[in-house]
């Protein structure tokens, strides 16, 4: 009996539709967040994360409707990130049925927002998302900084220090994305994951770079992550969540498998 390491599929949502195509077998509507969430629920995903990439804030309200629709049908933990800037944004998402919200840029502009949010809504629902990138050469001890704007804008903030500070302010979890690895399929930045995981006492979700099942195991075993977030390897039907869990279990990682229930 032990706490299972979690597998979290992440879906990018633009104006209420899932983008970067999900290519499950026989899915009727690859853009429908409700159907995709339902499929991941059946497949044994441990949580689901929606990342709102809608550019215009006018269209953001559609995400609230998406969350409502998904939460009415899928009874697993649901995280929503993207564009969360005020306590009112958090309240709206929680009321719609989200369990956690991801805060990223707003924390950089105003770290006290994290404290305020944690005190008001509870640490358990505050996930601080950190986009980190290595800023020095391979011959030096690694150093990573927090980046914004999809990895284009350097903030000068040390990523490991930032994670520690966010945890101190009341974050309940860190979603750590390596911007060096994101989209590369080369695996997580394990040194980064390990550095952050060792620096904080709250759970860390590793993200960015998953290209195969061994990467998931490495994120947990070598990176020390409590959960692994992945998109393309599941969306494109390369692997099912069940296959990923069977592989992880075979490598000695504790996972929740439905056949055991």
């Amino acid at each position: 009996m032990t706490l299972a390491k979690r597998i979290i599929p992440c879906l990018d949502v633009d104006e209420g539709r899932v983008v970067k195509g999900v290519k499950f077998l026989d899915i009727r509507d690859a853009g429908d967040p409700v159907e995709i969430a339902r499929r991941y629920d059946q497949a044994g995903a441990d949580e689901i994360t929606f990342l709102d990439i809608t550019a215009s804030s006018d269209e953001r309200e559609t995400l609230v409707q998406v969350v409502e629709a998904v939460a009415a049908e899928v009874f697993m933990p649901l995280t929503v990130g993207g564009g969360i800037r005020t306590p009112a944004d958090i309240r709206r998402m929680l009321n719609a049925g989200a369990d956690k919200v991801g805060i990223n840029t707003a924390a950089i502009h105003n770290p006290e927002f994290v404290r305020e949010a944690a005190e008001r809504f509870g640490s358990q629902c505050i996930v601080v998302a950190i986009d980190a990138k290595r800023v020095n050469g391979d011959d030096e001890p690694p150093r990573w900084e927090v980046f914004t704007h999809g990895g284009r804008r350097q903030t000068g903030i040390d990523a490991v220090e930032w994670a520690r500070r966010m945890a101190d302010l009341g974050a309940g979890e860190i979603l750590l994305t390596s911007m060096d690895r994101d989209g590369t399929r080369e695996g997580f930045d394990l040194a980064l994951t390990r550095a952050v995981s060792d620096a904080v006492t709250i759970p860390v979700i590793a993200s960015g770079g998953v290209g195969g099942l061994q990467h998931l195991v490495d994120g947990v075993v070598e990176g020390g992550a409590d959960a692994v977030l992945a998109a393309s390897i599941f969306h494109f039907g390369e692997y099912t969540v069940a296959e990923a869990k069977a592989f992880m279990a075979g490598q000695g990682v504790a996972v929740r498998r439905q056949e055991e229930t």
Binding site: L3, A4, R6, D46, T201, P203, V204, D226
Partner: peptide, 14 residues
């Protein structure tokens, strides 16, 4: 500590 706190995620109930 066996891991992080909060105890967050899926665990079994006897």
């Amino acid at each position: 500590p066996p891991g992080k706190v909060p105890h967050m995620g899926w665990n079994q109930v006897r």
